[in-house]
């Protein structure tokens, strides 16, 4: 049990969350579902940042990073929601499969 310290476990869980997020981004059709996948992966990333601070002992800096990342995450969600709603008004649904006008 020496091998799997809680730090290692956290790393593994984080990777699993990123995997889940990427899976969700790739395999779902609903745009909001896609951004939920992104958010899940971003959760893992923030966790990694805090973990990194914990491991190298520089928790202040990692907190500062995390605060910035969270602010950016919120703004991304806002912009994404704006674009999604714009598309919803054009198409009447939020299906990503509609978006094949640009190709080739």
């Amino acid at each position: 049990m020496e091998l799997f310290t809680w730090e290692t476990n956290m790393l593994i869980v984080g990777f699993l969350m990123i995997l889940a997020g990427c899976y969700c981004m790739i395999r779902t059709y609903h745009m909001l579902k896609i951004i939920i996948g992104v958010e899940v992966a971003m959760k893992a990333v923030t966790m990694f940042l805090i973990l990194a601070g914990r491991i190298n002992g520089n928790m202040d800096l990692s907190q500062a990073f995390v605060v910035t990342v969270i602010v950016i995450e919120v703004i991304v969600a806002v912009v994404f929601a704006g674009v999604t709603i714009g598309l919803y008004k054009k198409y009447g649904n939020m299906d990503i499969r509609n978006l094949t006008q640009l190709k080739g």
């Binding site: 990427c22 990503i96 978006l99 006008q101 640009l102 080739g104």
Partner: peptide
């Protein structure tokens, strides 16, 4: 590159 987002990803 057929315009499908999932393929891009």
């Amino acid at each position: 590159s057929d315009g499908r987002l999932s393929h891009y990803l």
